[in-house]
């Protein structure tokens, strides 16, 4: 059975994880590769690096970060934030990203979705949608949630899928940072309308919020950042919690990695 995915988001600025990472036992708490390695050992299913600076001069730092994380973990890796065009996407993929997340650029130039899907395959193209409840609908916002677009999130998600997006990363602006739970109505509205997987984001504050978004919200995957940053073993505990509630999930089994040399007879 296909498992529901738990995705950790690393908000990265100038090569460091931001959003107040604060936990004990790590020498480089803000180092993305160290954090990704810890999540991997706890059984995270996927990692998203979100570049929150995303200015032109910082893109080299981003490439270094992607390379460092890709060296540590053998998991799907998505990179988003400030990907304005094909060149930015190519730089992220060349550095080791498996998927790129595009948001503002996809809305202003929807052709970019198709261009990237043709070049790298649909599985490599995630369209990120930031939505906010307004007048009984879900309005799409761009520029990190600063600018409304008068586009309906459900309708835009459907268009993105038709144009070749492989997944939708759906963030509720209303819920983001509140720790009050995902917007399950928004998630379900999009998940029911598109033939591609939907990743829910924004509002995770408790393990039961994940249960809700996978059942009521019909999400295929759920993304969070700070809930994982602060607590030790949060990923493995969350997965056990979900598994106990009959939600299909991948549970990490400790397994020593046998190197080629050790395998030799």
């Amino acid at each position: 059975m296909l498992s529901k995915r738990i995705i950790a988001c690393l908000d990265v600025r100038d090569g460091s994880v931001v959003k107040g990472v604060n936990f004990e036992g790590l020498r480089h708490a803000g180092d993305p590769a160290t954090l990704a390695d810890r999540y991997n050992r706890e059984g995270i299913d996927e990692v998203v690096i979100l570049d929150v600076t995303a200015t032109i001069e910082k893109r080299k730092a981003l490439a270094d970060t992607i390379e460092a994380v890709a060296r540590e973990i053998f998991l799907p890796l998505c990179v988003g934030g400030g990907i304005r065009g094909e060149d930015h996407a190519a730089a992220a993929i060349d550095a080791g990203a498996d998927k790129v997340g595009i948001n503002t650029a996809a809305l202003s130039n929807p052709e970019l979705i198709t261009t990237l899907a043709k070049r790298y395959g649909s599985q490599a193209v995630i369209v990120a949608i930031d939505a906010k409840r307004e007048n009984n609908r879900f309005n799409v916002y761009v520029r990190s949630g600063q600018q409304g677009t008068n586009r309906d999130a459900v309708e835009w998600a459907m268009e993105a899928a038709e144009r070749g997006a492989g997944e939708i990363l759906l963030t509720s602006i209303d819920q983001d940072g509140t720790k009050e739970g995902f917007d399950c109505k928004l998630t379900a509205a999009v998940a029911e309308s598109v033939p591609i997987p939907v990743i829910a984001s924004g509002g995770a504050g408790s393990f039961d919020h994940f249960v809700q978004v996978f059942t009521e919200g019909q999400a295929d995957a759920a993304l969070a950042a700070s809930i994982f940053h602060y607590a030790e073993h949060a990923v493995s505990d969350l997965k056990q919690h979900l598994s106990d509630r009959q939600i299909p999930i991948r549970l990490q089994k400790p397994r020593p990695i046998t190197s080629q040399l050790e395998l030799s007879d």
Binding site: M1, L2, S3, K4, R5, D45, S122, Q123, G166, E167, P195, I196, P197, D220, A221, R250, K253, T258
Partner: peptide, 26 residues
């Protein structure tokens, strides 16, 4: 949903050098 994206279980159908050391449902 298509594409089939994510982690899914392997059911081992016979002895194999490729999947040696894996357990059912990995």
């Amino acid at each position: 949903k298509v594409p089939h994206v994510g982690w899914n279980s392997l059911h081992l159908t016979r002895r194999s050098w490729l999947l040696d050391g894996l357990t059912e449902g990995d």
